[in-house]
C-alpha cells in the first residue's frame, strides 16, 4: 500500500492471479495506470511458464470435477515444485488439494497481514523493497542448482541488459520477448547441429 492503492487490492490480487512474481509486477503497473493491453501482454509472458507445468503435474489423480478445476487454478510454482519432487507412491488427490489450499490460505493471509503491518508502521521503511530482489536472486540460485542451464542464464542476462538500455520504460516487455526469441534461435541452432551430425 506504499504504492497508493486501496487495501482490498492485496487479497483480490492474491485470489485472481495467485502468482507471486506477477502480483508484485502488477502493483507497480496499476499504480502508474498502465494500459490494459500492456497488462495483458505482461501477464501472458510472465506466466507463460505455467504452460510447461502440465507435463508432470499429477492432475490425473484428482477425479472430482470441481476439485480438478481448483487444482488447475491453484497450480502455482510452489505446488508444482513440491509435487514434482514427491515420489509416485506418496502422491494422492487429498494430499495434493490439501497442499494447494494451505498455500493459498497462507498467501492471501500473508497479503492481508502485510497491509495491516504497513498501516501500523509510522513511516515506510526505506529499502524494504530489496526483499523482492533478494527473493528472486535466491529462486534463481535454486533453479540453477537443480538445472545447470548456463546458456539460458547468459541469454537472459543479455536480454535484460539490452532491454534496460534501449527501452527502459517498457523493459519487462522487451526483455521477455527478446529472451523467448533468443531461446527459439538457440533451439533452431541446436536442431540444425543435430541434423548435420
Amino acid at each position: 500500500m506504499q504504492a497508493g492503492l486501496p487495501w482490498w487490492l492485496a487479497p483480490a490480487l492474491s485470489l485472481s492471479a495467485f502468482a507471486g512474481s506477477l502480483e508484485l509486477l502488477l502493483v507497480g503497473m496499476m499504480a502508474s495506470v498502465t494500459p490494459l493491453a500492456a497488462v495483458a501482454l505482461t501477464v501472458l509472458v510472465v506466466n507463460f511458464r505455467h504452460v510447461f507445468y502440465a507435463f508432470n503435474f499429477p492432475l490425473h489423480l484428482v477425479k472430482q470435477p470441481a476439485a480438478k478445476v481448483y487444482a488447475v487454478y491453484a497450480m502455482i510454482d510452489e505446488a508444482y515444485a513440491v509435487n514434482a519432487s514427491l515420489p509416485e507412491h506418496e502422491r494422492s488427490a487429498p494430499r495434493l488439494l490439501a497442499m494447494q489450499i494451505a498455500c493459498e490460505t497462507y498467501w492471501v493471509g500473508g497479503g492481508l497481514l502485510g497491509v495491516a503491518l504497513g498501516a501500523a508502521l509510522p513511516a515506510p521503511v526505506k529499502g524494504l523493497e530489496f526483499a523482492l530482489c533478494a527473493l528472486f536472486t535466491v529462486l534463481t540460485l535454486d533453479a540453477f542448482c537443480s538445472r545447470k542451464e548456463l546458456p539460458s542464464l547468459l541469454l537472459a542476462g543479455a536480454s535484460v541488459t539490452i532491454a534496460l538500455f534501449l527501452t527502459p520504460a517498457v523493459a519487462m516487455f522487451t526483455v521477455l520477448l527478446l529472451f523467448v526469441g533468443l531461446l527459439l534461435a538457440r533451439h533452431f541452432a541446436t536442431a540444425r547441429k543435430a541434423a548435420d551430425a
Binding site: 542464464l153 536480454s159 523493459a171 526483455v175
Partner: peptide
C-alpha cells in the same frame, strides 16, 4: 520440451535483475 527446460532459470534471473535495477 526445450523451452520447458530452458525458461525457468532465465525468467527468474530476469526478475532478479529488474528488481535490482528498480531498487
Amino acid at each position: 520440451r526445450r523451452l520447458a527446460v530452458w525458461m525457468p532459470v532465465g525468467i527468474l534471473a530476469i526478475l532478479a535483475v529488474t528488481a535490482l535495477h528498480g531498487t
